[in-house]
Amino acid sequence: MSQINSKITEEIRSKVKALLSAEEIAAFVGFIDGTLPMTARPFTARSPEDADRLVFNSFCVVNPAVYLPPLLKSLEPPRRPTDPLPEGPLPKVGILATGCWSRNISIQLQENQIARERVVVLGTGCRGMVDMRKVGSIIDGREIEKAYELDDRISVSGKGFSEEILLEDVLRDNCLTCICPNPVIMDHRVGGQVPDRRVDNRFPFVDEIESKSLDKRWEWFQNEISSCIRCYACRNVCPLCYCPTCFVDDSRPQWVGKSLDPADTSIFHILRAFHCAGRCTNCGSCETVCPMGINMRVLTSKLTKDVIDLYGTEAGVDSDAPLPLTTYSETDRQDFMV
């Protein structure tokens, strides 16, 4: 086990145990070991005993902030939609947060999805999470039966093979371009500060696509989304997606058809990305969870790049700055207009 991560794991367990025992929080959102090698399952600990199962490692690929708004709501006393909230403090929820996850919590605060006083953030620095597809291509698609994580490498083994892989070689692309490894908001720190990563180009994939011709870009896009099965895992894992009714579920008017028509799938992916404009924290969950391996993060990265170019804001880093699409400047560029 990685020394760094096992230390963080220990600290999380003792801290969460204390918080749950003292009934300071009603639940804690973290991770436990999954049933397959190199997986971590998002987990809601509700008792001090649960806290002993929590872990932190390089396989925590799902952004736990996605669970926060519904969990907080579920802990409120049952009432009719029109009834006011009861007086007095409501149950609190603890959550583990790395840099990007904390930025998502910050955005949920800005968008009034959660109340700051009901959230207890355990912040930890993050050195990046592992991309299973990169691991898969290194070991030639063979099945991993055992994996063992060290500080800077992972040793994986299966039928007839055993390999040591450098962590840096298999980190997710979003983690390799991470600008914020340490949490922006936290109440308790677990583990140490992680040094900022040197990132020369934050948007290598966007640049690559932008350099193509129009026709090639269209071909790339159609090819990329052609394997989409419309399971909406990318949407549901996204902490930014909390609308009670998603645009894909609207029927009058129906913005997107329900089957695998290329036009409908295109519109779904464009709109899903567009709804994250200026809000996406590059946490990479959408891309990681896609069962078909679609690199839809390129679309949100393109928007992030444009937002930085045009409006100079970085989502969730500065909780006082308004989100770029909820504000304006009279001098915004309009050279795109006729």
């Binding site: 399952r41 998002p42 987990f43 809601t44 799902v62 996605v66 669970y67 099965i229 419309r230 399971c231 909406y232 895992a233 949407r235 549901n236 894992v237 969870v289 069962p291």
Partner: peptide, 16 residues
Amino acid sequence: DSVADSCLNCGACTFL
């Protein structure tokens, strides 16, 4: 409840 705590309610399982 604990299964549902983790579930994202996406359709990956059902569609595969």
